[in-house]
Amino acid sequence: MKKNDYRPGEVIVTDFLGYQHWSIVSDRKCDDNQYKLISATRRNGTVKEEKFDTVTQGRHSYKVGDIGKPEDFLFLIDRARGWIGQWDYSILSANCEHFVNLIRLDKAKSRQLENTLLCSAITLLLVSASSKKISVSSMLCLLVISGGIAVYASRGQPAASNSLNHNEGNIG
């Protein structure tokens, strides 16, 4: 898909180092005729409606789904806008994926976070059950690796195999 081919109500995922950022395509456009994105960011500490390029920062981005039928998405976009400036960002309880899922599914949840915490807990249990002593630095390294694997396994999948690189002027 071309960069301007995404539509209001679609969910866009942007790949950042070690995590994905989740956004909802707005029905409002910028001066450059690109749709804005609504998302919760650590950068802002809350929900904002911003230019596509500001949110994605030129990273690989693609569509993973939409937030309903055309008659539903305006209601849900308005609902997302209701959180602008009201959302207190927290990586553990109110991150971008929590936000998008609250709007889409009425349940604030983050598979990336849930799987990372589960995988890290299993790693801790396995290491503590082992008869070998392990250093703190080795333990931290194992936790980072297991957390990274969990985040990777939790990635949003491109809808209809349309993932393209934003830097090439495309988005899926």
Rank of each mutant, 00 (worst) to 15 (best):
D78N: 13
S137C: 09
I38Y: 02
S135I: 09
S137Y: 09
E10Q: 14
K109Y: 15
I134G: 03
V25A: 06
V64H: 03
G9P: 09
R111D: 14
G58Y: 04
S110N: 11
W83C: 02
L117P: 06
T54P: 02
I91R: 09
T54F: 12
D27H: 09
Y35N: 06
D66S: 12
L118C: 08
K107M: 13
P8M: 09
D53Q: 12
L105V: 10
I67M: 01
V144P: 00
Y89E: 01
S130I: 04
D27C: 05
C141F: 15
V55N: 03
V13L: 07
L125Y: 03
F52A: 03
E50P: 03
Y6A: 06
C96D: 05
D66V: 02
D31L: 10
L102W: 08
Y62C: 05
A40G: 10
R59F: 04
E97D: 14
D66W: 03
I77G: 04
S138R: 15
K63S: 08
W83G: 00
N115R: 11
Q20H: 05
Y19G: 00
D66A: 06
I67V: 05
A121L: 12
W22E: 00
H21T: 02
C96P: 10
G65C: 07
S23F: 01
R42M: 15
Q57F: 09
T116W: 04
K51G: 14
M139L: 15
E114M: 06
F99L: 02
A121P: 00
Q20I: 05
S130F: 10
A129G: 15
S135M: 08
C30E: 14
I103E: 11
L126R: 09
K107G: 07
I91V: 14
A108Y: 12
F73Q: 12
S23L: 01
A94L: 04
I91F: 14
N44P: 01
F16S: 00
L142G: 04
T46G: 10
R111V: 14
N101G: 10
S137D: 13
T46I: 11
H98G: 07
F75W: 03
I134A: 04
K51N: 15
Y89V: 02
F99I: 05
S128D: 13
G65E: 05
R79N: 08
H60Y: 15
S90C: 07
D106W: 11
E114D: 13
V55E: 07
L126W: 04
V11K: 06
I67E: 01
A121W: 06
